[in-house]
């Protein structure tokens, strides 16, 4: 199966800044891996349910009880940039 990947689009989705050379390099590697991975498409799976959990479990809940939060100094201690109790980031291009 021939795999065609818009690697620049994938890199934007994954939010990794790559040069043109890197894009080409990764694009070629992914195509190779996916050609092998495409083996999964050869197995007949009609009527087969997908598995997302290895064990059949349901309803793992916690009670609605408050546990102590981190103190703010700890919460912010690893921040590349903090400002007045906030995490600080450069301005955003996109609106939500």
């Amino acid at each position: 199966m021939a795999i065609d990947i818009d690697i620049a689009y994938v890199a934007r989705l994954a939010r990794i800044e790559l040069s043109d050379e890197e894009l080409e390099h990764y694009g070629a590697q992914l195509e190779g891996i996916l050609e092998h991975a495409a083996l999964v498409q050869q197995l007949p799976t009609q009527g087969v349910e997908p598995t997302s959990h290895p064990l059949p479990m349901v309803n793992s809940f916690r009670p609605d009880e408050v546990t102590p939060p981190l103190d703010r100094e700890t919460a912010l201690s690893q921040a590349p940039q903090a400002d007045g109790g906030h995490f600080r980031v450069p301005p955003t291009l996109e609106e939500e």
């Binding site: 939010r15 990794i16 690893q78 921040a79 590349p80 940039q81 995490f87 450069p90 955003t92 291009l93």
Partner: peptide, 17 residues
């Protein structure tokens, strides 16, 4: 944003990428 490495960028999108 919250921890680990940060490489500066003009926007938060660029910084993260």
């Amino acid at each position: 944003v919250r921890y680990g490495l940060r490489v500066d960028g003009a926007t938060v999108e660029e910084m993260t990428a």
